[in-house]
Design a protein around this nucleic acid. Structure first.
Lengths: 332, 332
DNA sequence: TTGTATGCGTTATCAC
DNA sequence: GTGATAACGCATACAA
């Protein structure tokens, strides 16, 4: 693979001149520029990004850490980030943390070791302290879906509690009084927040919270299936099921139908996240909109602004969820 | 950020020795090893992967190019690859090609410039010639979902034609004789192959292929919605709808229901890909299984074998699709 | 406008 | 077993 040196020899100029025409940051005569360009083309020269990074201490890339590489939530997030960054000619380097502390730290180490210019992290297992320390390091960092007061301006998060509140309130206003709830993993902050919102709404309507009709799921379809199976076995009846995300709602719906019940006639179902698919399933899922794509875009804008000094735009740090009523819920 | 030099000074040894204990590739006495380790810990030393790459000409990472960062298909693929690579302590660097020639080449350039040790590509827009040339370059390359005879052992692909054949044949055997077909973008090879398989099955059963009941979709939900709307407006009736992928099937199902028709009573629907969700929608989707996750895993194994000389395992180059009959189809 | 020289943080090839 | 020292491919301060 040709190097800058080969190009300089062929073009009959110095190595520095070649570097200059690449970076267009210094005046080079029209004529030599052309000579260099020709030589580059002739050699099929491609700059070595690694060497560039080492010499300049910048990589023109931002690192992204997601929990999983699959799933609609992370898919939207990655797409949102990449789309925004691409307009600025920055690249992304993606790693997966799998919601495990060791792997998350590992992924972050990897991204740092690759000398990313900034990091966008969706982390769940590492501690606040760890993150605060990280933010105080020398590499710019944004957190998605996590709010830490001490570093609030590094956070792009959704008010999950409010989302949980909206979800339950909507059903309460439809007359529902008996609820079942399939939550996310209880150690995850967003799962806790959504459940808190649920409870707040119940309290507001003087409806007691029934722990026996709560199931801790895993945010996946199978969690929803297992959850509803469990809940249906309990002695207490319920008219509404709230799932802490759409995937679990989907899993639950499948089982409910298998048991011969109708949605929403027998059970109203509410999801959370408003994944793209939720409008294509049957019945169309009522849910809480989580604008994750825009949040990804916003996180990317943050790095553009704070790292690459581009486009001074307004950064929204806390997003507000909104209710999306469709066909899986109905008044009782 | 501490460098290897800082460590060597603190440990009172030479720079080379520090490098040795990092790479454990040469004998270093127990005692000095410990001194170095201590110094590293004390300084919070992290190796600079960029410098390592430059010096060693290896990066311990493999580059992945996908068309999109979202969607169940690419999600599964990325997950499959990453899971396999992680067991070997290799990392992935992901870029998106957006099914556009310029962007695909761009992404490949990026991955090469980052000195990935190998590349796994899901490309659709670049030409065979370009890829053949690439494969003859000095970086190991695997192609997913693409078969090019000249470089067959660099390809991990599915027999899409056979899948299309299976899909249609299953419906023919159920007695269907009037078909509508929503295809993928006609310039995509896999879309062409699936359609060819469809036509082969028709021919085998002496059923004429009706081009007026074929719609060219975009492999997305909206393509399915638009497609079925168009097809329903045609004068010719049909009892079965075949969609070139599950997402379009989903989009079509939504519209069909909005029009007050029943699935599968009024129309049988067959998808393609067997995305994870297809078993959770209602009615459960009959489809063709595309083992993309295993194929991703296989591509990763290929790189492990051909680039990192690990685990001499058997590589399957052409995967065979299989029929998955569920509830969206029924005999007529 | 162009060239020279040095450094970026490692690995690796020699010596000792 | 350990230490100098030359690459690796490029950016950049300093000269010319």
């Amino acid at each position: 693979m040709a190097t800058i040196y080969d190009v300089s020899v062929l073009a009959g100029v110095s190595l520095a001149t070649v570097s200059r025409v690449m970076n267009k940051n210094a005046k080079v005569s029209e004529k030599t520029t052309q000579k260099v360009l020709d030589a580059m083309k002739q050699l099929g020269y491609r700059p070595n990004a690694i060497a560039q990074s080492l010499a300049s201490n910048r990589s023109n890339s931002v690192g992204i850490l997601v929990s999983e590489l699959h799933g609609p939530f992370y898919g939207s997030m990655m797409s949102g980030i990449e789309a925004e960054l691409r307009t600025a000619e920055k690249h992304v380097i993606i790693a997966a943390g799998h919601s495990e502390e060791a792997l998350e730290k590992d992924g972050i180490e990897f991204l740092i070791s690759r000398r990313c210019d900034a990091l966008i992290l969706h982390v769940e297992a590492v501690s606040d302290e760890y993150l605060i320390e990280l933010v105080n390091g020398d590499i710019p960092i944004v957190l998605i879906n996590r709010y830490i007061a001490e570093i609030a301006n590094h956070c792009i998060s959704l008010n999950n509690e409010l989302g949980g509140y909206y979800a339950t309130k909507a059903l309460l206003e439809q007359g529902h009084r008996e609820f079942a709830y399939i939550s996310g993993p209880s150690w995850k902050m967003d799962a806790q927040d959504r459940l808190s919102g649920h409870q707040r709404a119940l309290t507001e309507f003087n409806v007691p919270y029934d722990a026996t009709l709560t199931f801790e799921g895993d945010y996946q379809e199978t969690g929803g299936s297992k959850g509803i199976s469990y809940l249906l076995k309990q002695s207490r009846p319920f008219t509404a099921l709230i799932c802490a995300n759409d995937e679990m709602a989907l899993g639950a719906m499948t089982v409910i139908r298998e048991k011969g019940m109708m949605i929403p006639e027998d059970i109203s179902i509410m999801g959370f996240d408003n994944i793209f698919l939720s409008q294509f399933i049957h019945p169309k899922l009522s849910t809480i909109d989580y604008p994750i794509k825009q949040m990804g875009k916003m996180a990317a804008s943050w790095t553009l602004k704070n790292t690459f000094n581009q486009a001074e735009q307004e950064i929204t740090h806390i997003f507000t969820p909104s209710l999306v009523m469709r066909d899986s819920t109905r008044p009782v």
